[in-house]
Amino acid sequence: MSMFARRILLGVTAAIGVYVGLWAAVWPTGFYDAFPGFGRIWVAVDGPFNEHLIRDVGALYLGLAVASIAAAFARDAAAARVVGVAWTVFGLPHLLYHVTKLGGMATVDAIGNVVSLGGNLALGILLMLPGPRETIDEKEDV
Rank of each mutant, 00 (worst) to 15 (best):
Ala5Pro: 05
Arg6Asn: 13
Arg7Ile: 05
Leu9Val: 12
Leu9Ala: 14
Ile16Ala: 13
Gly17Cys: 02
Tyr19Ala: 14
Leu22Ser: 10
Ala24His: 13
Gly30Gln: 11
Asp33Ser: 13
Ala34Gln: 14
Pro36Asp: 10
Gly37Asn: 13
Gly39Leu: 11
Gly39Ser: 09
Arg40Ile: 10
Ala44Arg: 12
Val45Met: 04
Val45Tyr: 02
Asp46Gln: 15
Glu51Pro: 02
Leu60Asn: 09
Ala65Ile: 06
Val66Trp: 09
Ala70Ile: 05
Ala72Arg: 11
Ala74Leu: 02
Ala74Lys: 01
Asp76Gly: 12
Ala77Arg: 10
Ala78Glu: 00
Ala79Trp: 09
Val82His: 11
Val83His: 00
Gly84Arg: 05
Gly84Cys: 04
Trp87Arg: 11
Val89His: 02
Leu92Met: 12
Pro93Met: 03
His94Cys: 10
Leu95Glu: 06
Tyr97Gly: 01
Leu102Phe: 01
Thr107Leu: 15
Asn113Ala: 12
Leu117Thr: 10
Asn120Tyr: 03
Leu121Trp: 08
Ala122Asn: 02
Leu123Val: 01
Met128Trp: 06
Leu129Arg: 14
Pro130Glu: 04
Pro130Asn: 09
Pro132Lys: 07
Pro132Ile: 02
Arg133Met: 10
Thr135Leu: 00
Glu138Cys: 05
Asp141Pro: 13
Asp141Met: 09
Val142Gly: 14
